[in-house]
């Protein structure tokens, strides 16, 4: 293994911690699990730093590791523990202590996103927050491009409806959905 690659991964990790946490939270909808995911991703990435291809995007490589840990290790554990759905609305909100308008709206939007199926949640995050192209997202998630675009339209349409009547949505009951 090249020491330089290892150093690159090690240094790069610290720049992507917040993004890894957010992705982990969007996947798991649980803050503890999101932190577990970040730690496991860090350990795995350092362990496998020799597999990272210099010149390619480190964040994509880290996301792929995190996703694989989620799917193969943590998701099933959470389902077994019966905690797959319950905290959707606890996790995907921003600090209620800061009652500024932006955060209230952001919390409503995140709560809506928290109700979506996992595949929709991560698609919308990867494309709109992490800048994946449709093609990149399709390859990353192993689905056709049309599926990616259809998921985006569907999520945006739901959120667009929310913008019609935010107050009503704010008080609506939770309706978790862990399907994909």
């Amino acid at each position: 293994m090249s020491r330089t690659d290892h150093e690159e991964v090690r240094t790069g990790l610290s720049q992507h911690l917040a993004a890894l946490w957010r992705y982990g939270l969007v996947l798991s909808r649980n803050r503890d699990t999101a932190e577990d995911l970040v730690q496991a991703t860090c350990v795995r990435a350092l362990e496998r730093s020799h597999q990272f291809l210099p010149g390619t995007r480190l964040d994509r490589w880290l996301f792929a590791i995190e996703r694989s840990i989620w799917i193969n290790e943590l998701r099933s554990r959470r389902v077994r523990q019966g905690t797959g759905v319950v905290d959707a609305e606890i996790a995907l909100v921003v600090d209620g202590g800061r009652e500024v308008e932006t955060n209230i709206l952001a919390s409503q939007v995140l709560r809506e996103i928290g109700r979506l199926a996992e595949a929709q949640r991560e698609t919308v995050l990867l494309v709109y927050a992490e800048g994946f192209s449709y093609r990149e997202a399709a390859e990353f998630l192993g689905v056709p491009i049309g599926t990616i675009m259809s998921r985006l339209a569907s999520v945006r349409e739901k959120l667009g409806g929310m913008a019609d009547s935010p107050k009503q949505r704010m008080t609506s009951e939770r309706g978790g959905d862990d399907g994909s």
Binding site: A18, A19, W21, R22, L25, V26, L92, V94, T102, N103, L105, A106, S107, V109, L110, I113, V124, L125, Y128, A129, A153, V155, R156, E157, K158, L159, G160, G161, M162, A163
Partner: peptide, 18 residues
Amino acid sequence: ERIERGGRLIVPAFEALQ
């Protein structure tokens, strides 16, 4: 129009989350 409206909300929400 609905899809357009919904799209505007996403980036700020994810930024707030991060």
